[in-house]
Amino acid sequence: MDYDNEMTLSFRAVSANESFARVSVAAFALQLDPAVSEITEIKTAVSEAVTNSIIHAYDNSSGIVHIWCGCLQNRLYIEITDNGKGIENVNEAMEPLYTSKPEQERSGLGFTIMESFMDKMEVYSEVGKGTKVVMEKNIGQCVSNG
């Protein structure tokens, strides 16, 4: 696809980079003139995907998270990729409240929140190779700017 604009970002899979990732994607999305609520939704979805990579894919050990963003007209495209351990059963992982780490008080709502806040969300994963989360959102659908 021939996008109007694109950007890529790669960073260490450490929790201090969660806010960096969501703020960077939100800054890229600003060119589409989103409402405040849309910015919050994008930040939340990105935070969930990046946190999953850090906690689950890399198990809090070393690794790199890659983000690609594109925009075409009023649609924002986001891909968040890791080269971690992968998800054995994606359908199970996407079940609301499912978590493989209940002892860490994880809520099991990451994918549910991504799905709720974005217009499209797909997960591609291969055990031992990694996971890619693909999200899309139409910007400018909110009536108010609050």
């Binding site: 939340t44 935070s47 969930e48 946190t51 008080e105 994880r106 809520s107 099991g108 709502l109 990451g110």
Partner: peptide, 13 residues
């Protein structure tokens, strides 16, 4: 001004 599902886990705990 921002909370993701980590906050939900914290409240449930």
């Amino acid at each position: 001004d921002f909370m993701d599902s980590a906050g939900i886990g914290m409240i449930i705990g």
